[in-house]
Design a binder for these strands. Structure first.
Lengths: 199, 199
DNA sequence: GCCATTGATGACAGTTGCTGACATCAATCA
DNA sequence: TGATTGATGTCAGCAACTGTCATCAATGGC
């Protein structure tokens, strides 16, 4: 049943070939060992048994190797939002989207922590992370519009939801227990509190 | 009284030398004429009568030439937040910060529109814009903490405020009238509505 | 079993963003 | 007048990224 094989490059891996995964693994290792700046794409490719050119066939740029998979997250959230009951409020639908990914994160707590250490040390990576969040916010906005939520309500609700997600994630990734849904709930309640407290 | 002078490079400008301004102007022109990708830093520098090396002495990278001045915006917002009355609520203080920059924008409506056309066409520029917003959100968070607002309240309020700002800006920059404070007020009211509407 | 096609990769050259190091020159000041 | 300072020019070089073509394993019709 084990899928360990020898491919035609002589490399051994859990799944046949899987060059993208090998590149991601190699990148994480090198970023952790020597830092992001000190790591070259050529170095990552070499450790993965591939060439620099192939790296750029799998990832649009050097940063992307750390963020690949964000589309999956986006898809999960959008799907959850779509399957929320039609009578749900915009904020309720957003809450459903956030809740849909807590399990995904709880299963990857150590990996997320290692990743965050790298990102926190490099502004260009934080920039990319923000861009990914913006992308998700845009997708959620679109999904809310599809539910009949007008503008600017849709965008503001989605952005507020992403703000909750970011605060919750920051809290979750720092903690050791790793209960993402509790963090979401707390941050969402906090947002409601500061808004209802008024200006 | 006019400050037009001939500097030692033979260049003429409204203010003596002002290399940074010349580079920004040249960049805006070239980005608009030929697009961001097709414009090289060497080309910008040449049009400004300077060298590529000097460009990078004034701007940390190619994108930054479009975003220089963001620190000024951040400073204005932080100052306004600081001078808000101590009894103001977190959201009220954030509203003061947003209101403090509406005039600044209203005075630069056409320039903002031209800039936005360029940014909208290039994901890497949108990424930088998001990073600038994140930076401001961080500064506002810190300023709220200094007022005694705890975490995660401070971060969430600041992020919500930036979300309002972004929606308001998008609306303002698309419009022809250019009344930023009205856009801020509308978006803030919308945010309050969608939150108070509940989950 | 053979061959054409397809998809992923390697090889290689080239452009551009960006940096370090040193030289130059005008302005300033002791 | 001469030393210093700050901004710029010059030049070499690295690394990110791209276009192009060759290679080769796998696939599928015959």
């Amino acid at each position: 049943m084990s899928a360990t094989v020898i491919n035609y490059h002589g490399a051994m891996s859990r799944w046949p070939s899987n060059p993208r995964g090998r590149l991601q693994q190699a990148a994480m290792e090198l970023f952790t060992e020597h830092g992001y700046d000190q790591t070259t794409v050529a170095g990552i490719a070499e450790r993965a048994g591939l060439t620099e050119r192939t790296f750029f066939r799998h990832f649009s740029d050097k940063r992307e190797v750390l963020f690949f998979g964000g589309e999956q997250l986006e898809a999960m959230m959008v799907a959850a939002l779509r399957s929320a009951p039609p009578e749900a409020t915009p904020l309720g639908a957003i809450e459903a989207a956030l809740s849909a990914v807590t399990e995904f994160f709880d299963e990857r707590h150590p990996l997320s922590q290692a990743r965050q250490v790298i990102i926190d040390a490099h502004p260009e990576l934080q920039e990319r992370e923000g861009a990914k969040m913006d992308r998700i916010a845009g997708a959620l906005t679109e999904a809310l519009r599809a539910r009949g939520v007008p503008d600017p309500d849709a965008r503001l609700t989605a952005d507020a939801g992403i703000a909750v997600f970011r605060s919750a994630f920051a809290q979750w990734v720092r903690s050791d227990v790793g209960d993402m849904s509790a963090c979401i709930e707390e941050c969402l309640a906090t947002l409601e509190k500061v808004i209802e407290q008024g200006r």
